[in-house]
Simulated assay, not measured.
Amino acid sequence: MRGRSDERGRALLDALLEGRPEPDLAAHAAHSLGLPEQGRYAVAVLRPGGGAPAGVAMEADGLRFLRRRRADREVVVVALGDRDPAVLAGLLVRWCPGPGGIGPVADGLAGLGDARRLAEVALLTCPPGTTEIVRLEERLPTALVVSQPELSARLVADVFGPLLDLDPADRALLMRTLEAWLECGGSAGRAAGRLYCHRNTVLNRLRRLERLTSRSLSRPRELVEMMLALDAFRLTAPQP
């Protein structure tokens, strides 16, 4: 009987995560899983999974975790109570090195489907090869880019079209320089330290980038276009 009850609970949790519009689904799941129907929940989508078997309820730092394996993803539902969801990333890396995405807080079990879908989008903002676990709220502009792959491809082609014809090593150098400059708040000196080159080298590369793209990093609208195109390129370009 316990086994059948656990199996039913897992099936109901899967239905919630899929966002199925079934009558009284949240109420049945709350009863079966021993969770409040109304409350604050977070959903994380991780790749690859690890640690305890999927589907097992866990307790950590006063939070309850429910884990489900879905294809090449592991989905974790967290009953937050009054806790800040910002603490989740640090807890999740205990059994999964990442990458992973955390969706916005769901108000009740009925919101798990939307929270799971947005956690998937957050995961898409993690570049290949990284092991970070990020919250959607931290990546909203990038999430807009990756959630529209056709438009992202057009943005890359429009902004970086001339760069795509360069030698791959040359193109990668310009892209790394732009990325470092952005991460350093537009400071060529700090970017040079990160790239182990002279400040003037950074400035020369940025000027070359401006010439190739016909865009100026000093014009806000064109700078935004380049930032979004860089995100799209990093997340969609084939990896060597």
Rank of each mutant, 00 (worst) to 15 (best):
M1W: 12
R2H: 12
S5C: 13
R8D: 13
R8A: 10
G9M: 06
R10N: 10
R10L: 11
A15K: 09
A15E: 05
L16A: 00
L16V: 00
L17M: 03
P21T: 03
L25T: 00
A26T: 03
A27R: 06
R40V: 10
V43M: 03
A44T: 05
V45C: 00
V45W: 01
L46T: 12
R47W: 12
G51P: 10
A52H: 13
P53H: 09
G55T: 07
A60K: 14
D61C: 15
L63I: 04
L63A: 05
L63K: 04
R64I: 10
F65V: 08
R67D: 02
G81Q: 02
G81Y: 04
D82H: 06
A86P: 10
A89K: 09
L92C: 07
L92T: 03
W95T: 15
P97K: 01
G98A: 03
P99Y: 00
G101W: 04
G103D: 07
A106I: 07
A106G: 06
L109C: 07
A110S: 06
A110T: 06
G113V: 04
R116D: 01
R117A: 15
R117N: 13
E120F: 05
E120Y: 08
V121S: 00
A122F: 01
L123C: 04
C126A: 08
G129D: 03
E132G: 10
E132S: 13
E132N: 11
V134P: 00
P141W: 02
V145A: 01
E150K: 11
E150M: 13
A157H: 13
D158L: 14
D167P: 10
P168A: 14
P168T: 14
D170R: 15
R171T: 05
A172I: 10
L173K: 11
R176I: 09
R176K: 14
L178D: 04
E183G: 13
E183N: 15
G189K: 13
G189S: 15
G189V: 14
G189Q: 14
R190V: 14
A191F: 01
A192K: 05
H198E: 15
N200S: 15
N200G: 15
V202K: 06
L203D: 11
L203H: 05
R205M: 10
L206V: 05
R207W: 08
E210A: 08
S214N: 14
S216M: 09
S216H: 04
R221P: 09
L228W: 01
A229F: 11
D231S: 14
P238N: 11
Q239P: 11
